[in-house]
Write a protein that binds this DNA or RNA. Structure first.
Lengths: 404, 404
DNA sequence: AGAGTTTGTTGTATGGCTAAACATATCTCC
DNA sequence: GGAGATATGTTTAGCCATACAACAAACTCT
């Protein structure tokens, strides 16, 4: 009845849980919080919060700022922030037309990044990952030279990544199949001690999007990533829903158009993927999506018709998703971000007709708020999230040195 | 970054957590466990487990059996079981062609039940729920007369139930819309102090199914409930995935057949619902599903063709679900239970073609194992699950009387 | 300058767990 | 049939993280 084999709670678990709780409060706050603020929000006493914060400060995960004057009676609070430039996480990505590396610190700031354009369809995994290791080495060197500790690395790939056993199973648009990316990367000396966590590109981009939306009401949504293929991810209360193997959210392969029989019919990608969009708009694929955006913005009929059709397909497919997972917001990311204005109307039209619960809770369609290359940011955030969930390894008990 | 506002862990939380953990071990065990077994599995010391078990025994949630002889050195262990006939939970259900009440105790045994057949399409909610309250009163009287405590009640309905704000929004096959079922039931004196938890029929049936499968590997699955309509639920690690409002799993309304344009096309229910099945098999709807089962079992071509078509539709729709939520098993419940053998082949055929991850993890299709009227059982289990998750209200600290 | 406020720290107390010894009950082996 | 081995459950002492309460520090207001 009660889920899986839960863990016994001992005295130490309690301390670690509260340590994580306090660190989470500092990380998630929109503006710096004080020990007293954390005490009020969590219900822990100020004494307890102080002890935990001191440990986090001593281990370099949290930094104290100078007290600032507030027009209010009483002693001035010491603002607490995630320690900048102390611990860094690295997000890497290989996609169809670029690869790159981005390093982020606990404060969420980008410390260093390298992006390279290219065409990696049908590429050789070993060669591409070798190049990725090279530029990762450059980024890591920058971090090490300023004395930062590396929390870990993550690699985003546009395909099915097996969360349990490790390897990349299938990346159709790269032409990769059964690639042990962790081994290929780890064999390079610069990444030897830092085996990357693998995850799907859309899942990690969705994590960055959830991070960008923290503090707002929309912490549950379906993220649609329109790159060459169409990826997706389901976010519930700020957490990525991964499924059994981490293969959830593969909305690009939802079946549509099956009137004749159940054996025909194409997938969503065949209606709303980038190639399908360009073809339907009568534009050469080589021009890239920018051409389509421009054509649509000046009102080119073929382009508008293509986008309307793609929007309907997206709306229909996502109505099915919403009926199954009951989520109230759809976020258009990747290339769809720039097409959101053209896609929204036909999407909403389909959603309003197909979503069973529409009369009691409309489904909103919005554009992504995370910046460029969200999967790299999301990969780094995924690593940091593990650190926040279990800070004890980074904040040992004996690190309670004298405070400054 | 770190999910929602977690709770602070204090000393007391620790005790409650471990109390719940110990009770869960007793409830989930296939055969009676001893204090020492629990100590080994949870990692808590025997001393701690003893203290917690004593509290559960004193409050009547756990019972000690007579030690049995095992062919092994050492003192004989005291077997612990969920206390039978001590605390009961009540599951109620209104469906299209029956309503009923079932009472279950902590040991999972059915204590008492009342089922009434009928046709509740287009019925009056107040009248039907009044009748339900009557027979609930009879069941509750039986329980009270034997001195049992009532943990709570739950009501299963075939429609959209708003988990947050309470009322039933829409039950298409009953013809009910915006019915405040909690208020209508609670106005009857017998249920005055026992406001029911509302939930979707398929969700609760899936909970019973998960309970029936506890201890096995298949604790994650998509449950498909084929009644007059088609309901569904997603189960992950034995927990029901409810979504934002509790409206997840509405697979009956997944859109299929959209070749011409995106504005036409029917839902899964139009291909694989009970009425569609009967029509396709050339049987009068009034004969009921039993006629279809018999026709199929003797090889009637029209019946077999109807089932093949329905299986293909189900397989296609569920392939979409599996691609989105990445679950490895599909369980056919409700009336589909008896048709599982005929539906499986075309379903697997569609799944194998459409599920992107098929080469690395096949999706199995199996028949439900929970017995008749699983939603009633599941409703009672949902109530008991709340008790197990927070036993402190039922096992007060001062109830540590002398042990028997 | 003194009263009032808010922040952060310093003791002391309490509750729940661990650890280690002990009592109890059984099996095995000579 | 008794000694030793083995397993279960209980007792006692000790530890650890939190609560509680008092206090020091720093600021505003009148």
């Amino acid at each position: 009845m009660a889920g899986g084999p839960e863990r016994a709670a001992r005295q130490g678990s309690l301390r670690e849980h509260n340590l994580s709780l306090v660190l989470g409060q500092v990380m998630d706050a929109a503006s710096p919080v004080s020990r007293a603020d954390i005490s009020v929000v969590t219900g822990l006493t100020r004494a307890t919060v102080s002890a935990l914060v001191d440990r986090l400060v001593a281990s370099g995960l949290v930094a104290e700022l100078e007290p600032v004057a507030v027009q209010r009676a009483g002693r001035r609070a010491v603002p607490l922030v995630p320690a900048p430039r102390s611990v860094a996480a690295v997000g890497m990505e290989v996609n169809v037309d670029y690869l790159g590396v981005r390093a982020v610190d606990l404060a969420g700031g980008v410390l260093s990044e390298r992006i390279e354009r290219g065409d990696f369809r049908g590429s050789d995994p070993a060669q591409v990952l070798g190049r990725l290791a090279e530029i990762s080495g450059e980024v890591l060197a920058t971090l090490s030279s300023s004395g930062m500790r590396i929390a870990g690395t993550a690699l985003a790939l546009p395909g099915l990544v097996d969360r349990v056993t490790g390897p990349l199973r299938l990346a159709p648009n790269l032409g990769w199949r059964d690639v042990d990316a962790i081994a290929l990367l780890s064999q390079h000396p610069v990444l030897a001690g830092l085996p990357p966590r693998l995850a799907n590109e859309a899942n990690l981009a969705a994590r960055a999007e959830a991070h960008a939306r923290r503090g707002t009401a929309s912490q549950s949504f379906v993220y649609v990533s329109g790159e060459i293929g169409i990826g997706g991810a389901i976010v519930l209360d700020g957490e990525i829903f991964t499924g059994r193997h981490g293969w959830s959210g593969e909305i690009g392969h939802i079946a549509l158009g099956t009137a004749g029989g159940f054996d025909e019919g194409g997938s969503l990608e065949a209606y709303a993927g980038q190639d399908a969009l360009m073809d339907a708009a009568g534009l050469p694929r080589e021009l890239g999506l920018r051409a389509l955006v421009e054509a649509a913005d000046v009102g080119e009929p073929a382009a508008l018709a293509a986008l309307s059709r793609a929007g309907s397909a997206l709306g229909l497919a996502l109505a099915n998703v919403v009926n199954v997972v009951d989520v109230g917001e759809i976020v258009l990311g990747g290339n769809y971000h720039r097409l959101a204005e053209h896609l929204r109307a036909p999407m909403v039209e389909q959603l309003s007709r197909r979503v069973l619960s529409w009369p009691w809770g409309e489904v909103s369609v919005s554009a992504a708020r995370a910046g460029d290359f969200p999967a790299m940011t999301g990969g780094a955030l995924a690593v940091l999230r593990l650190l926040v969930a279990d800070p004890s390894a980074w904040a040992p008990d004996d690190a309670k040195g004298p405070r400054g």
